[in-house]
Every structure is written in C-alpha cells, then in structure tokens.
Design a protein around this nucleic acid. Structure first.
Lengths: 210, 210
DNA sequence: TCGGAATGTGACCTGTCAGTCATATTCATA
DNA sequence: TATGAATATGACTGACAGGTCACATTCCGA
C-alpha cells in the first residue's frame, strides 16, 4: 500500500501518477515497466516516488488492487446471491458483466491479462495462484447446484467443466476485444446468448427423437 | 537462422547450447531470458555465441522454429486431408494430438505459451500475428464444411465459434498440464471425448421431444 | 518569527543486459 | 612445416534498471 504521504497529495497529482502507472502496466509486463519512465513523465522526482511507494512492487500491487476493487463492483450484485437464479442465467450474467467491465475499462483488462499471463514473474505465484482457485470454486459450486437442480447432465466432469467455463469467460472477453469498438452492445449480448446456447444445447444438429 | 559455424559444431556442443536456451525460454519471456546466463552455463565464450547467432532474436527464432517443426509432425497427418472425416472427428483428433504433443514436449509447450502470452514483445506481432489467423482459418473452413454437411446447426456464428474452439484447444491442454503427470493417457483421451460431447450436445439436460 | 517535522530532489550506487572487437588459438591445406 | 582462414575469447562499452541518501525546500504550529 502507498504511504500516507501519497494519500496526502493533491488529487490531481495522485491521479496523474496512477494514470501514468496504468499507462505503463497497460502495455508492459511488470518487469519491463519502468519506474524511471513513470517518474520522468509525471514530472516528480525519483526520490519522491520512493516516498509515496515502498518500491515498484508496491505501486503495482496498488494498481491491481484498484482493478480488483472496480471489477468487484460489477460482480458483487451477482455473487451476493448466486443460488437465486438458474445455472445458465447466472453464467450468462457473469459473462455479460465481464464484457461490460472490459468495455468500460479496457486498460484495466489489458493490465489484468498481462498480469495473468506473466507466470514468470514472482508476483504471479504470489498474487494469482492464491486467488484463482476461489474463482473456480465458485463455478464448481454453481455446477454442483445445477446438477442437483436437474439443469445440467449428471455425468459431466465438474472439475474440468469449471476449468472450461473459466476459460470461456476469458475467451468471450477476448473476442469482443478483438472485434474492437465497431461492435454494438446488443450484438455483444447476443454473442453471450449464443455462447450459452452452445454450452447448453451443443452446436450439433439435434437428434430427432420420436 | 544460426550461422554455418554453429552447424559445423560437434553435435554435443550444439545440443547443449540449444538445451540451455530451451531451459532459459521455458521459464522466462524473451526479454528476461539472458544470453549471458546461457553463455555462462554452457561454458562457451560470449564472443563465440555471437559467431553462432546473429543476436538474441536469432537464437529465439531458431528455438521457436524447432518447436513449430516438431508440432507439425503431430498435425501433418491430420491437416493433409481434413475433409475426409466428420467435423467432430477431426476436431477430436486435433485436440488429442495437441495433448499428445504437450505430454511429450512439455518444455516446448511452456515456451509456446509464454511466447503467445508475451504480447508486449515486438516479437509477438512479428511472429504470432501473421501465423495465428491461419490457425483460425482452418477451423473456419472445418466449421463451414460441417454446416454444409449437416453436422452443425446452421445458425452458429462461424467467426465466434472458430475463436471459441481455438481457445478450447488451449484450455484442454492447460487442464492436462494443471493435472500434471498423475493422469493416465486414456483418462486424457476420455477427457477430450467428454469435451467434444459437450460441444456437440451441450451440457444441458436434453429436452424430451415426443 | 522561529524551529522542527514533512516533503521534495537528483546525482549516485550497484547490477544486469545485449552486443563488440582486438587478440589468441586452432585447423586445414600445400 | 608454413600460411591463411576459421574459430575462440573475455574484457569492454553504453544503456538502462531499481533503489538510496545527503541535502534543499516547504509547511505549520507555537
């Protein structure tokens, strides 16, 4: 966490520093991001930086913290009561809110992607590996519930399916990023609807049962 | 490409250098991998290295080249005649051969994953972005064919589905890596079978049609 | 207005990196 | 064995990194 000195700074200055930090981590993995550059661009002295943050890691953690906080705002209404709706409805909402987050905070998503991909960094183990299992834990719970409710076939491999749905979530967000800005919001939501249909009913031509 | 000097080297020495390079790129993205380390560990002089390779990029490209070459060995029987079997059969074989490759060359897969994740490196655009579209081109072709043959519903979004299946491929390989060595080959193949069943028929409980 | 605490500053330290080059060694051929 | 070509070598360069610290400036309560 940044020092109290940092939080005493005028809001402008604070925002400028964080904004430049985000700009740095948005394009470069932790190790290639440069404190020197952030400092130079923000016009503050190197020594000042190290009075605001303990070290580079401290700044990075703080940025990730801001991202996670923001993301939780999107998810919390869902996660507060995940059992109140059907499995496919909850998954659909999760995916949609993920896309919404990505559209409204594209820089955050870029940082998160780089962060999650940078398994080489010692920060990866430290920050990701401990939080990611919870993510899949939620999916596993939802799947279990879905099976008990008779929404999902009984013979699915719960672990594997949880893994798969997690990745599908990333995949659909990536796809919308790849498509870029020239895709409308309702098209996006249609996309999620389609994905859920694939997941629920498959893409094969249904067998005719008489 | 390495120089002729490199290829004139005794095989032992050549293998040692490449092996250490693989060991380096296996854990670190391009920019963090160190020529100095490779040189030190392999016991050759720095100057010698630069008589074997034009620069660091040259070595990296060569390693990636070796990986792609090896991977093609697994895929070529499939890709030589992708239209001869049904859509789901071809996809199943593609996934299975991918898993097989990952099991037999885990280090290669690690390097490839790091390479594909390192979008910050200038090498990414240069090496990946030009080859990746072909990958999805193949899937798109297969899907088109599947629709025409009546194996796949007509109303699927071909682009999105191609994207999704590409990611599913990564996902299943990742899952097997996550499970580690304590998973048997036939279990793996069952896994792919299950995945394909999800894809084809969905995970929802089938509607009863009378 | 004074004095101590808080904040600001940038030259400097150590380390690592990719890449170079003058020089030494080895090798093949005549 | 003599000679030129091929190969080996590691000290060196310049760039950049994160982090430090002695000193300068500002701020604020008494």
């Amino acid at each position: 966490m940044p020092t109290s000195t940092f939080f005493n700074l005028p809001l402008d200055k604070r925002n400028k520093i964080i904004d430049l930090a985000i700009g740095e981590f948005e394009h470069l993995p932790y190790d290639k991001a440069s404190v020197n550059r952030i400092v130079k661009e923000s016009g503050i002295a190197k020594g000042s930086f190290y009075q605001y943050f303990e070290d580079k890691k401290d700044l990075y953690r703080y940025v990730i913290h801001l991202i996670v906080e923001e993301k939780l705002k999107y998810l919390s209404p869902l996660l507060s009561d995940p059992d109140s709706h059907g499995f496919f409805a909850v998954i659909e909402e999760l995916f949609k809110s993920g896309i919404q987050f990505a559209r409204e905070h594209p820089r955050y998503v870029d940082i998160a992607r780089i962060h999650l991909a940078d398994t080489a960094s010692p920060l990866y183990r430290e920050m990701v590996k401990e939080h990611l299992p919870r993510n899949q834990e939620i999916f596993r719970h939802l799947i279990d519930l879905g099976i008990r409710r008779g929404e999902i076939r009984e013979d699915v491999d719960v672990d594997f399916l949880a893994h798969l749905i997690t990745d599908m979530n990333y995949s659909v967000v990536d796809y919308t990023k790849k498509m870029g800005g020239d895709i409308l919001d309702d098209q996006l939501m249609n996309l999620v609807g389609r994905l859920l249909k694939y997941l629920k009913e498959g893409i094969g031509v249904p067998r005719v049962t008489i």
